Amino acid sequence: MALAALLSSTAAAAADPAPRAAATTRAQVPAGVTAGVAVFDRRTGTFTEQINAAGQFRSASVVKILIALDMLWNRDPATLPAADRTRIDAMLRSSDDAAASHYWANNGQGAVIDRMVARLRLADTARPPASHPGFWGYTALSARDTVTIYRYLLDSAPAAVRDYVMNNLRQSTRCATDGYDQHFGIAGSFNRPWAVKQGWSGFSSGGCTAPASARSAQNGAGAAAVDLSRPALHTTGVVGAGDRAIVAVLTLHPSGTPYGKAYTDLGRLTRSLNVPGATRPAGTWIGTWGSGVRVRTQATTGSAAVTTLPAGVEVLVSCQKRGQQVSVPPYVNDWWAHLPQYGGYMTNIYLSSPDNQVPGVPVC
């Protein structure tokens, strides 16, 4: 069968043992992906990675950090009305679009970006094009400016603002408000401690358990000097004890790229980076197939679902064990894989492996 051929042909390529130490090689950009990369070591004050660091990308939801900082400028977060704290919490933790649109409309739209560019002396950041003034996700942003934003937050912002924003980013939810799985890139590549603000635009399904919905108009597709049409997936944040490394990886993918494919490619790129202070979870990276694949609390179909995987995404498997027999004709399998980053199990049927028990993966 074509499916069987796919599984056997991709198994060797899909399995990718995860190293425990930080990578030392230059960023490895997957074929077809346009990337802007910057990794800054706060301990030494130097960049360990820079590729197209000044390149402008549409920000997607990464701009929500600037929207929050503008709202908090010269203001103690403790003085915010409860409604504003609720909105900002959701915007930073779960990438809530409605909250971003609320502040964008109320605080002058592109003027938010103009103010933050001047305050932080950003070099490559610009308000959305005049043809799309309400589209906050069309803000132009670069990897090096993203590092500057995090450096301001960590080193220059008032302590109350720093703690409020960073604590929200440390509590990033796996499922965003719109149903996209947002724990790709940094969140999928490194052990905690980390804090992230992610961005995505131009995809149709993120695969989380929460109900999915189309991206808002403010984060949709269009045309301007900055590429607004190709699907965008960005991972930004800090990694390691004491927030040692600032990581910004901005990517564009070929038109029509499925979310799971972009999620996987961004993960591979992020794992190739030299990120000082980062530690990586043990296990083997393996591709998956199928859609609507559930991760469950136990190795049974009757146990609670933790989440639903993005279709075709690569997952980290720490070990495998026998559980309930699952039948997906013509396949039958009673082996289940433990996915440490999800805290649950998936049936091995949907792993891209030619055997029921994945070779080289230990038994739990």
Rank of each mutant, 00 (worst) to 15 (best):
T10W: 02
A12V: 02
A13C: 02
P17E: 01
R20I: 08
A22C: 06
V29M: 01
P30K: 00
G32I: 03
V33F: 05
A38N: 03
F40V: 01
D41N: 02
R43T: 11
G45D: 14
T46P: 00
A53W: 06
A54E: 12
G55T: 12
G55W: 08
V63S: 11
A78H: 03
T79E: 03
P81G: 05
A83Y: 04
D84R: 09
T86W: 13
T86Y: 11
I88V: 15
A98S: 11
A100K: 11
W104H: 08
A105S: 15
N107C: 10
G108Y: 09
Q109N: 13
Q109I: 01
G110K: 09
G110P: 10
A123T: 14
A126I: 05
R127P: 08
H132N: 10
F135H: 14
T139H: 10
A143W: 07
L153K: 09
S156F: 07
A160H: 02
Y164L: 15
N167T: 14
Q198A: 14
W200H: 09
S205Q: 13
S205D: 15
S205E: 11
T209R: 15
A210M: 03
R215Y: 07
A225Y: 08
A225S: 15
A232V: 12
A241V: 14
D243N: 15
A245K: 05
A245H: 00
I246W: 02
I246G: 10
T251I: 01
T251M: 12
G256V: 04
P258Y: 02
Y263C: 00
R271S: 13
N274A: 14
P281H: 10
G283T: 09
G287M: 05
R294P: 11
Q298D: 12
T300M: 08
A311D: 05
V313Q: 07
V317T: 02
C319S: 14
Q320E: 15
Q325A: 13
S327F: 03
V328R: 13
Y331T: 05
Y331G: 00
N333P: 04
L339H: 04
Y342A: 06
G343N: 10
G343T: 04
N348Y: 03
S352W: 00
S353A: 12
Q357K: 13
C364V: 13
C364Q: 07
